[in-house]
Design a protein around this nucleic acid. Sequence first.
DNA 1: CTCATAATGTACGAACTAGTACGTTTAGGC
DNA 2: GCCTAAACGTACTAGTTCGTACATTATGAG
Lengths: 218, 218
Amino acid sequence: MLKRMPPAHKRTNDPERTKRDIIEVATQEFASEGYSGARVDAIAARTRTSKRMIYYYFGGKEQLYLAVLAEAYRNIRALEDQLDIERCDAREGLRRLIEATFDHDERNPNFIRLVSIENIHHGKHLKQNPQLRQLNASVITTLDRILARGRKEGVFRNDVDAVDLHLAISSYCFFRVANRHTFGALFDRDLSEPKVLAKSRTQIVEMILAWLGAKSTG
Amino acid sequence: MLKRMPPAHKRTNDPERTKRDIIEVATQEFASEGYSGARVDAIAARTRTSKRMIYYYFGGKEQLYLAVLAEAYRNIRALEDQLDIERCDAREGLRRLIEATFDHDERNPNFIRLVSIENIHHGKHLKQNPQLRQLNASVITTLDRILARGRKEGVFRNDVDAVDLHLAISSYCFFRVANRHTFGALFDRDLSEPKVLAKSRTQIVEMILAWLGAKSTG
DNA sequence: CTCATAATGTACGAACTAGTACGTTTAGGC
DNA sequence: GCCTAAACGTACTAGTTCGTACATTATGAG
């Protein structure tokens, strides 16, 4: 029988806080190092608790990552809620939604990085969690309504659907955060610099509006 | 003194082939698993040679990755060369360049994935290799010429520079390959499906042309 | 043919890493 | 106050993974 070290300090039980603490630290670590690059020990070390608790609450590294990913997706819900889109015309509504998407991606680089990481791993974890699909459906619904309104107003073409549109908007907003490092290195342009950022923000709006306002070809 | 197993078969020395072989297999492994997820032993196993040679020629895992990245960038040089852009008007030239970028990204998912991976690692390897910058500079030069011509022809706005334009084109083409998995899972649309792909290819061209043809605001 | 050097193969080891065995403490119901 | 279950801590292990020690073979120059 070995002599065990007694706990260093007095303990306080607080399961909710412990779980939140682990998720927060793990989000940092996974977003920064990737799934395989992340170290369970590194996460544990920066937690107010021990590695034991990661396994107690989450079961293992992969399930912890799953929880981190789910939490990240949950936190972005309904970015279009406070935009008051119904109150203005279609072009203005769309402008606000694009800017909200742009600002969201800019403000949440960890989320962007987690999505990139998830794609590196062929989206296999996301596919395991069907409920996350619903969280993103709302963007499509909103875009659908804006598109319908714009067509009725006669300012939008009708051969672009909501998912096409979301792809166009999202790709730009996502890329300029996700690929900041290589883009910056290759083209000498720091996309996070305020002036560059502001110009990009204007340009994606102009781009989408010009596109939807154009006559369809063919 | 231990008895060593004699080599299983007769050996053939072919350093160039060995190096190429290693790079090819390593490209697959890194692109598929990420930098940290890639296993040196896994690479060695799928090579016609042994792990020893990886260290002999490249020095280590990180340097091997560096070589893979450099090779991937080198292989994409001058995608705009055979487009005969100078022979047609600005809008047509730009259309061809956009389509070439689109097709290139579609055909080279491994390259796309390596760039994603490099960004996960904050671009630190790319930054170590300044000569790769020049390989990408040509796209900007080409875009610059097209833009100048278009302005002279009076069909392009003049407040969009070549790097802005490249960002717009590249983000779309890149994203739809890089984020295929999460996008497909969340929005039920398989971006690699031929019909969807063809529509996207048309749309990015329309988008960019509509944008550049629009009057500048403000 | 000889010999030096480049190229290669096999077996091994040190360090790292996810996960666990085992024991202790806290907290709340009664 | 007592008792049980949940919450927690420490030390350890088994397996993996990068890298290397050591030895051998091919090849081309002279």
